[in-house]
Design a protein around this nucleic acid. Structure first.
Lengths: 129, 129, 129, 129
DNA sequence: GTGGTCTAGACCACG
DNA sequence: GTGGTCTAGACCACA
């Protein structure tokens, strides 16, 4: 499967971050494994209908997070990851808050609590470890 | 309790949206009920250390979402809510995606699946209906 | 019929103008005729759930337009009207523009052109001369 | 034609809403079509002699109505519209009421019923579908 | 005293 | 160069 992701222009979430998010998914779930090469920036850019700088920014984000290694000329490669660095407590809180906000917005939009739990388990399913 | 919320000015999430998020919490959880008056924009603004326009923007957001009624001269009042307006499917997807993103970022940061489930239930707890 | 009108707090249109608009209706359509007395400011105010100053402001608006005569102690009375003063062309344009805007917003909201015409005729019906 | 609209700064109707109204016109009548780009907020602002925030507010209004897509770095683009979102009955009433008000104010200002009908048909003409 | 509008302008984030 | 956010503060309209 040649890495099919899709993003939502028109969302308030910037394109480069959506791309990084979608790619991080494939990394977390193990669909992209250490040693695998990511598609060239320009190819993924045309696939998604964005400027290649936007994709490059996403790759840079993931590289900073320690997922990728970028080398001029040889593209982006998934890195062998050890234990994820223990997140700063401030960072932890932010992530938990994002979850909380997502849940409350769904509640506010009328989702039943059960469906939200189902969505959560869909998201958790397939994530190793 | 005079409505104590707090925001993080250093966060990438804009202040006005944080304010709206925190207020939406108190609305979803029923701590603010139909008929209740919100603090004047200028007061909440000084409490939070932001400009009153920033709070006004948050109030306006919640008003267009149907939570509040804003009236010149009177103030901001929580509205009696009927059925939540049927969200466009696009909007629904965005909400579910936000949940998925939050979960996967937590996984990527090394949270055990179980702890994430606990966080979820904390978020769901106390939301009526 | 003891003059039953209703307004929509929560609308962006200020209450006093809604009251004036509703009253002007009854004047244009002839349900209130020269010599008729309007309800006391305080009574109409409590009926509508607004401050009596708000109703007073509406009465004043209609008095300025030449519909009413206000006398302290004797309340508001509908005036014998001659020919309406020829509106300034600027005023004429504003009124026509309001009609145009109303129509376009209905179109934008998906109303069929025919239904809009029906609404128009409902509005015109019963207006004498 | 580079989108020529004009507003009346002396009107009680706020400038940002006038701008939104005028733009909605060009959208409803099909003079601006899906995919078309709107002028940058700052450019339209200087054209109209207002601050760019005022134009931005108008754009945001149309964006939440589903007409536009705003993207940082790109610009404002007219969106492909599906079915107009089913307006809340409350909203429907408000629109019909605005029409009714406009008509009765014209009657009150002395317009003959026939001329009003003519104005209506001018407003309806050119609106497709 | 309440919210609403607007300006002026700085600074940021995105593409 | 695009839109987004925020501040500072004036002035208005409303109740």
């Amino acid at each position: 499967m040649p890495l099919t992701i899709s993003i939502d222009l028109g969302s308030p979430v910037p394109a480069y971050r959506q791309i990084a998010d979608r790619l991080r998914e494939t990394l977390v779930t193990g669909h992209l494994r250490p040693g695998d090469a990511l598609p060239p920036v320009r190819q993924l850019a045309t696939d998604l209908g964005v400027h290649f700088n936007t994709v490059a920014e996403a790759y840079r984000t993931l590289a900073t997070e320690g997922w990728l290694m970028l080398r001029r000329g040889s593209g982006a490669v998934v890195v062998e990851r050890g234990v994820p660095p223990p997140a700063a407590p401030e960072q932890r809180d932010r992530l938990a808050l994002a979850l909380r906000d997502a849940v409350l917005k769904m509640r506010a939009a009328g989702w039943p609590a059960e469906e939200i739990a189902i969505e959560l388990h869909k998201a958790l399913k397939g994530t190793p470890s």
